[in-house]
């Protein structure tokens, strides 16, 4: 079904624009047309249908579910909910405080917030259709594992001590019994449709520019960086290439949708999977603007801890995946 986009790109790039196949520019333009048309099509369809399904899932219900859960279950479920519950980054502070004042441990809350940018259902389905199920599965598992392990670590070091005073007080005086389900349990199809339509407009207006940037970058890599160079210099998963990829990803900022075409291109060039994932996750999750937001509820010390924790886990994951891949 998706071959139609390859044909469209063949026609536009080679027939209409008269570019030569296998030339640098021809390849780059072909990649750009194929990926933008494919991604936009998939996005429109997927966002709508996924939103239809999860219209009844809201943040209040997630909190009520997580409150009072066994800790271990809490980390896993917090991380999974982080992946599937949509929220805009401007809501991360109210969510943090809502969870905290509901008595949910900081680690579980952070498992939720750390996984959220890394994995979302749209990104997973896009990955699935572009780079195949193996890499998608690895990506999703790594994202969840980082959220779970990060959450556990934060509770281990008693991260609640490092919250801003008012947030710490809210946690200490929390009364989980007071929280109540505010979301409606059943909703009509019309309401689902309205919700899905709003979600589509909302996500699309936020994401479209990242698709162009991501595909543009992917296309440039695809057309102009020779495979032999990547394979010769980075292809064996040299140990230093992973931390380098993570550091390079910090100043670059994209969301999970924009980074997928870059991933596709890097893997196509023979960059090992560990290095590629380390780079992409660092681009998506370690972004200064969103970290600074958390300063409202955390001290610098905790903020720095979480940042270093993220960078370290991306690096370790990259090393492990490269090692497994090589052998």
């Amino acid at each position: 079904m998706l071959a139609i986009f390859t044909e469209l790109a063949d026609f536009l790039a080679f027939t209409l624009f008269g570019l030569t196949p296998n030339s640098k520019l021809g390849d780059a333009v072909h990649f750009f047309i194929e990926d933008t048309s494919k991604i936009f099509f998939l996005l429109l369809v997927m966002i709508y249908f996924i939103a239809l399904i999860r219209a009844s899932l809201n943040i209040e219900r997630v909190r009520d579910y997580l409150a009072g859960k066994n800790k271990l279950v809490g980390y896993v479920m917090g991380s999974i909910f982080g992946a599937i519950t949509p929220f805009c980054s401007c809501s991360s502070i109210p969510i943090f405080l809502g969870f905290t004042s509901g008595g949910i441990p900081v680690g579980i809350t952070m498992a939720f917030l750390l996984t959220s940018p890394l994995i979302n259902e749209v990104a997973v389905l896009l990955l699935l259709s572009i780079v195949g199920w193996e890499i998608t599965l690895i990506y999703a598992l790594v994202g969840l594992a980082i959220g779970i392990a990060g959450g556990m670590f934060l509770d281990l070091i008693h991260a609640e001590r490092l919250l801003q005073p008012f947030a710490r007080k809210a946690y200490e005086s929390a009364n989980p019994a007071l929280s109540k389900v505010t979301g409606k349990a059943s909703i009509s199809f019309k309401e689902r449709h309205e919700f899905a339509k709003q979600e589509l407009q909302d996500i699309f207006s936020r994401v479209w520019k990242w698709v162009f940037i991501g595909v543009g970058l992917g296309a440039a890599l695809h057309g102009f960086v020779p495979v032999s160079w990547v394979e010769g210099n980075l292809g064996d998963g040299q140990w230093w290439s992973v931390p380098l990829a993570v550091v390079l990803g910090i100043p670059l900022y994209s969301n999970a949708t924009g980074v997928i075409p870059v991933m596709e291109s890097l893997i196509g060039k023979g960059l090992p999977i560990g290095t590629t994932l380390a780079f992409c996750m660092s681009t998506v999750a370690a972004s200064f603007p969103e970290f600074i937001l958390l300063k409202q509820v955390m001290t610098w010390k905790l903020l720095a801890t979480i940042f270093v924790l993220l960078l370290a886990s991306f690096t370790v994951v990259g090393w492990i995946l490269n090692a497994v891949n090589v052998s």
Binding site: R63, S91, I93, I95, L97, G98, S101, A170, Q296
Partner: peptide
């Protein structure tokens, strides 16, 4: 102010 937002029990803005 996040503190005020919290006092209303609001989690999505």
């Amino acid at each position: 102010s996040p503190e005020v937002v919290m006092s209303y029990g609001v989690m999505s803005t």
